[in-house]
């Protein structure tokens, strides 16, 4: 049985890890990017990024002062959650504790009055996504999202006749419009199909995949590779100061859509690649997962 104290503690630890360290796949990709760049300016940006990750981890300090708003994915056997109200309250307490103790910047405000309660808690925030599976565990994924990258989100209802060409066009336009603002090198999440909300939702879900992970379907995997290669020819570079590395990866998810529509969405993650996950088993065993 999952106790509420256990959930609160897991959430606190996940937020601390997500805010103060980058996942190993992201660090690996940033190191490779550093090796690949040959001009002094982009090389220096990547060096500062890698050094920053080192300093943050050593001192348990946030990687970035924008510690994000708090998005969670809860995946697994949802029957292990005895009481959803209690479960969500425990997640909120974990967020409050992390805000106080890591500390995290209080970012969550009322969208109209802009009033800031100071604890990152408010209506529908933290936002929790549930993905039910038949696995013998519950996986909690902390996915704090900074505004720099989230503000560079784009969605369009293409016409079916625009097809794959239109999709590629929209992605390239979004990347060019974003420039260095989302703190490049970024990871691009693309959602194709579904409805407008589904497209953006799966674009965000795509960002949960580790760098280098390819879509299980060959055609989509090839499209990911093609876009990755093409985008890095654009020359925006780390922090928009020019260079060979504009993105670390491109992840695509798709859903079947109405015969009369073609939604496409782009969601971006900054170079920190902040995410952390842990699995909780039925017997109360907790497994901290890498990346």
């Amino acid at each position: 049985m999952l106790s509420e104290d256990m959930i609160e503690d897991v959430v606190f630890k996940l937020l601390k890890r997500a805010s103060t360290s980058s996942p190993p796949d992201v660090v690996r990709a940033l190191n490779e990017a550093y090796e690949r760049e040959d001009e002094p300016v982009p090389k220096m940006q990547l060096k500062a990024i890698l050094k920053n990750i080192e300093v943050a981890q050593e001192n348990s300090l946030p990687l970035c002062q924008d510690t994000g708003v708090h998005i969670f994915f809860v995946k697994g056997n949802l029957k292990l959650i005895p009481y959803f109200k209690g479960f969500e309250d425990a997640i909120k307490r974990g967020v409050m504790k992390a805000t106080e103790e890591v500390p995290l910047r209080p970012n969550a405000v009322h969208p109209i009055t802009r009033k800031n309660p100071g604890n990152n808690i408010g209506v529908r925030m933290p936002y929790i996504n549930y993905i039910p599976t038949d696995d013998p565990w519950i996986e909690i994924i902390a996915f704090p999202k900074g505004a720099g990258s989230e503000n560079m989100s784009f969605m369009s209802m293409l016409t079916p006749s625009q097809g794959l060409k239109g999709i590629k066009e929209f992605i390239i336009e979004s990347v060019i419009k974003s420039g260095g603002k989302p703190c490049t090198p970024t990871v691009i999440g693309v959602g194709i199909g579904g409805t407008s909300d589904i497209a953006m939702h799966i674009a965000k879900e795509a960002l949960l995949r580790p760098i280098g992970d390819r879509h299980p379907e060959k055609d989509i995997a090839e499209l990911e590779e093609e876009l990755l290669k093409a985008i890095n020819e654009i020359g925006i570079g780390p922090m928009g100061l020019g260079g060979k590395t504009t993105v670390l990866d491109v992840h695509i998810e798709y859903a079947y859509c109405h015969t009369a529509s073609l939604p496409v969405a782009v969601n971006t993650q900054c170079w920190t690649g902040r995410r952390a996950r842990a699995r909780i088993y039925e017997d109360g065993r907790i497994e901290e997962m890498e990346g």
């Binding site: 500062a48 050094k51 920053n52 943050a56 946030p62 970035c64 002062q65 922090m239 170079w271």
Partner: peptide, 13 residues
Amino acid sequence: LAMTGGAAALAAN
């Protein structure tokens, strides 16, 4: 002067 975005720990130091 452009500072590396997100490099907040480095700056704090």
